[in-house]
């Protein structure tokens, strides 16, 4: 069970919004890189977000580049799950590979700052502020297993190969 606050974002948040190309020189200095997460959309985000919070976004979250640094800095900021109406393909897979769940649901009913409780195995999000309950879409088995192990690298370390 995950519990935290919702940070609301709009549609079409790209990987360039999450971690702009102008910070490429910091990619091997992740702590420094993470200080700039989402800064072009909400400069205050990084100072306000706390361990356990959630990003709640509109459609096509994470479109653009394949940079795994994007979900990585989001995770480093303390975010424990991303909820979105839809997510871009590479970002979705990258986030799961880092053990960061991306949950597809109708995020319109969640407001900025709402307290959420997420039951990953039951597939349910409870908005404790509004009392609303949401369900999110299932992901393929292989992704669930990767998520269970905390990401692709720990998964491969343990199993040595993919198991469908």
């Amino acid at each position: 069970m995950l519990r935290g606050r919702a940070f609301k974002f709009g549609d079409g948040i790209s990987t360039d919004h999450i971690i702009p190309g102008r910070y490429t020189h910091l990619r091997s200095n992740l702590t420094e890189l993470a200080r700039h997460v989402l800064e072009d959309v909400d400069p205050a985000f990084v100072s306000r977000v706390r361990e356990g919070d959630f990003i709640v976004a509109g459609s096509n979250f994470g479109l653009g580049s394949s940079r795994e640094h994007a979900p990585l800095v989001i995770k480093m900021a303390g975010v424990r799950a991303i909820l979105a109406k839809s997510a871009a393909r590479i970002f979705f897979r990258n986030a799961i590979n880092l053990g960061l769940p991306v949950l597809i649901c109708d995020t319109d009913v969640i407001n900025d700052g709402d307290e959420l409780e997420i039951d990953l195995s039951a597939g349910v999000v409870k908005d404790l502020t509004s009392g609303q309950k949401l369900t999110f879409g299932k992901m393929p088995q292989v992704m669930l297993r990767i998520l269970d192990e905390g990401g692709l690298i720990p998964y491969i370390k343990k199993h040595g190969d993919f198991k469908l």
Binding site: I90, R93, L98, L152, I156, F162
Partner: peptide, 15 residues
């Protein structure tokens, strides 16, 4: 295109 983890594993496994 894929992320760094997926590509790392593809380099090692060939699949």
């Amino acid at each position: 295109g894929m992320g760094s983890s997926d590509v790392a594993v593809a380099m090692g496994l060939g699949r």
